[in-house]
C-alpha cells in the first residue's frame, strides 16, 4: 500500500534520512582517515569545517526521525479502518509482520541519534576535539541502523494490503480474525505496577546518584535502557487500561488521541527524553579521560543525569495521576 500520501511522506523521509546519514558518514570517513590536529594545513581546516556539516545533518535527521516516528504511529492509527479486526494502531501494525519491527527500529534509531549528538556536543567542548575518531566511528554504525529502519518500514508498507472489496468476488472480510490486535504481551496488573514503579524508582535513584557521582552513569545507562522496555510493557499491560477504564483495552498508542486528553504525550515525552539522556550520559562520561574534557564531560553527565531524574519524576507523576483519576479499580 504505497500510494498513500502519509506513507509516501514517510518513505520519502526515510530515503532522505538514509541519504543524509550516508553523506554524513562519507564526510565522517574522510575526517576519520585524514584527521591530524597537529597540522595547520589547509586540509585540516577543510576537515574541521566538515564536522559542522556532519553535525548539522545529524541534528536534522534526529528531528526528522522524531517527527516521522510520531507520524508513523498516527498514521497506523488512522489506517486501522482498512484492516479487518484492527481497532487502532496496534491492529495496523499487526496487519503485516514488519509493522512492529519497523516501529522498534525507528525508536532505536532515535536513541542512537541522540547518543551521537550528545557525544558530539561533548566533543565540541574539548579544544582538541578528543573524540573525533570515536564519534565518526559511531557514525559509521548509524548507517546500517538507518538503512535497516528504512528497509523495515518499506517492507511494512509494501506488505500492507487493505481488505477492500473487489468487483468480482463475494469474499467476506468480517470473519473472525480476533486476536490480531491482542497479541501484545500482557502482564497482570500487580506485577506490571511493581515493574513500573520499581523501574522508575531505580532509574530515579541512579540518576540522582549519577548527578552526585558521575561515575555511576555506567550503571545508569544500561538500567535506563532496560527500564524503558519495562515501562513500555507496563504501559501496555496496565497503565493504558486505567486510561481507557477498560481492562481489555491494551494499547500504547490510543493514549495519544484527543479522546484521552493527549495524556500519552505527557507520558512519552519525559520517558523518551529521560531515557535518551540517561543512556547517553555514560558514553559522554566515558570521555572524561581526554585531558581537554576532564572537566566538561563529568559536568555534562551531571546535568544530563539531573534532567533525566526530573523526567523520571514526571513519568511517575503522570502514571500515578492516570491511576488515581481512573474509573477502573483493580485493587480496593
Amino acid at each position: 500500500m504505497l500510494f498513500h500520501p502519509t506513507i509516501m511522506a514517510l518513505l520519502l523521509w526515510s530515503a532522505a534520512a538514509v541519504a543524509g546519514v550516508a553523506v554524513a558518514a562519507a564526510y565522517g570517513w574522510t575526517i576519520l582517515m585524514e584527521w591530524n590536529p597537529a597540522s595547520g594545513s589547509a586540509r585540516q581546516l577543510v576537515l574541521e569545517r566538515r564536522t559542522y556539516l556532519v553535525s548539522t545533518l545529524m541534528a536534522v535527521v534526529l528531528w526528522g526521525e522524531v517527527l516521522s516516528l510520531w507520524l508513523f504511529v498516527y498514521n497506523a492509527d488512522a489506517m486501522a479502518v482498512m484492516f479487518v479486526g484492527a481497532m487502532c494502531a496496534v491492529g495496523s501494525l499487526n496487519a503485516d509482520p514488519y509493522g512492529f519491527p519497523a516501529l522498534i527500529a525507528k525508536i532505536a534509531l532515535f536513541f542512537l541519534a541522540v547518543v551521537w549528538l550528545q557525544v558530539n556536543r561533548a566533543d565540541n567542548q574539548g579544544w582538541d576535539y578528543p573524540l573525533v575518531r570515536v564519534k565518526y566511528a559511531l557514525l559509521l554504525i548509524l548507517v546500517p541502523a538507518v538503512v535497516l529502519s528504512a528497509g523495515l518500514q518499506y517492507a511494512y508498507f509494501s506488505g500492507l494490503r487493505a481488505d477492500v472489496l473487489t468487483s468480482c468476488c463475494s469474499k467476506l472480510f468480517e470473519v473472525d480474525r480476533e486476536g490480531v490486535g491482542a497479541d501484545m504481551s500482557s502482564l497482570a496488573p500487580m506485577p506490571a505496577l511493581v515493574l513500573l514503579y520499581g523501574g522508575l524508582g531505580l532509574t530515579l535513584l541512579l540518576s540522582v546518584w549519577t548527578w552526585r557521582r558521575p561515575v555511576l552513569s555506567a550503571a545508569l545507562a544500561p538500567v535506563a535502557a532496560a527500564v524503558f522496555v519495562a515501562v513500555m510493557v507496563s504501559v501496555v499491560s496496565v497503565v493504558s487500561t486505567y486510561v481507557y477504564a477498560q481492562p481489555q483495552h491494551h494499547c500504547p498508542f490510543c493514549l495519544l488521541k484527543p479522546e484521552y486528553g493527549y495524556v500519552g504525550y505527557a507520558l512519552y515525552l519525559p520517558l523518551f527524553v529521560g531515557t535518551a539522556l540517561a543512556v547517553s550520559s555514560w558514553p559522554v562520561h566515558h570521555f572524561r579521560r581526554a585531558a581537554s574534557l576532564a572537566q566538561a564531560a563529568p559536568a555534562m553527565t551531571r546535568s544530563m543525569a539531573w534532567v533525566a531524574a526530573a523526567c523520571y519524576v514526571a513519568v511517575a507523576v503522570v502514571c500515578t495521576w492516570i491511576i488515581a483519576a481512573s474509573e477502573l479499580y483493580y485493587f480496593r
Binding site: 500500500m1 506513507i7 509516501m8 477492500v164 472489496l165 463475494s170 468480517e174
Partner: peptide
C-alpha cells in the same frame, strides 16, 4: 449466488480509494 457487502467493507474500500487518490495526487 449473492454478493454480501457490509458497511465496514464499504468503509474500508472508500478509505483505501481516497488514500490511493491522495497518493496519486502526491505523485
Amino acid at each position: 449466488e449473492a454478493r454480501v457487502v457490509t458497511r465496514a467493507d464499504m468503509l474500508r474500500t472508500y478509505e483505501a480509494l481516497f488514500d490511493w487518490r491522495g497518493g496519486m495526487v502526491a505523485v
